[in-house]
Design a protein around this nucleic acid. Sequence first.
DNA 1: CCTACCGATCGGTAGG
DNA 2: CCTACCGATCGGTAGG
Lengths: 211, 211
Amino acid sequence: MNRNKRAPSEVHNDQRTAILAKSEALFAGRGFPSTSMNDVAEASGLSKATIYHYFSDKEELLQTIAETHVSRLLAVVKLVEREDYPPDERLRQLILGFMREYETAHDAHRVLTEDVRFLESGARAAILAKERKVVAAFANALAAIRPELRSAKLDKPLTMFLFGMINWMFTWVDAKGPLSYEDMAELVTDLFFGGFSQVHHGRQPGKENPK
Amino acid sequence: MNRNKRAPSEVHNDQRTAILAKSEALFAGRGFPSTSMNDVAEASGLSKATIYHYFSDKEELLQTIAETHVSRLLAVVKLVEREDYPPDERLRQLILGFMREYETAHDAHRVLTEDVRFLESGARAAILAKERKVVAAFANALAAIRPELRSAKLDKPLTMFLFGMINWMFTWVDAKGPLSYEDMAELVTDLFFGGFSQVHHGRQPGKENPK
DNA sequence: CCTACCGATCGGTAGG
DNA sequence: CCTACCGATCGGTAGG
């Protein structure tokens, strides 16, 4: 019934979503600068002019992909924070939530971490502001578990090491490998929890070797 | 004395080294695909034709930079292995050696981790083979400390998490920040040593939830 | 939603 | 005849 009479906005939306999905895969695979708008058009089965009907330029594709993904990461953070877990469980849930997001949005995550630097400064700043909120949420959970780390100003660096472990995964994780993302989440969690509890908390940045 | 009579090969070598240094900085800053040979020529203060006198094409620049750097990393590995440290000290020294290399070869390291994927498959394979040797050296040191990790096939994943912490640093470390690279090396070492000793060693990949 | 294009710039090479 | 280069421009393709 009404098979030939979908609302135009619905078609419009499908088309737009398809273009974004194809762009995401292309950017993740060969990088933003090496992907041409002809590549995007061909992969989408549309003319280049049609792509430009939905997006004003190549950067807008990148910006939309990055913005959508970082907003989803922020949503994961807010979902966890609403649960009122004790601090250590909050950090565990943040890690688990990110690993799950990573699994379902592998390409978008890669675009976010590798290609955002090609945005002009205004658009880039907006993305980076949201990324900073995400980092702050993790650092807060860590500081709630071990407040000495914050007074020693080690909460941010340690959080960045955690993000390094997670964000670097796309370079080596084999989806068909023996380790599932749940396994990975458990490994990262054990590694990080075991690790930060060993960091000397008497230490202060730059005051290692008092002369 | 003899100020006007340098050996031609010496001039040649200086010129070549200068081109590589400029390319390295440009590739690290804006990425390989976004750097033009005109950029390289301009930064080097030479004509593009002169660049092509030293290097047959753009890829050869990238290949030389990556090859030189990964060979230097392998040299660090071999230097440490020659010392016959006990296993835990060997891993400590590997981490410290890499952090020092990272400090002095920041740009080259970034090019190695981000741009090698743009090499054609033959040249890329040669680099990746050396990278695999580096990873194996770290994994071996780890397995020598805790052999159960190897039998549980967790030595490689844990090693890759360590590389994640190190390789991700270029995205957030501020050279003028309070933490020196020596501080960073100590932090990463504490974090990793504290962490892997907490990983459940009874675990086997993919056998988490036996049905 | 397409064909037909543009100004500019790409990687690479000519003659001298 | 060689090396170490230069100014100018090639055939194609980029984003738009």
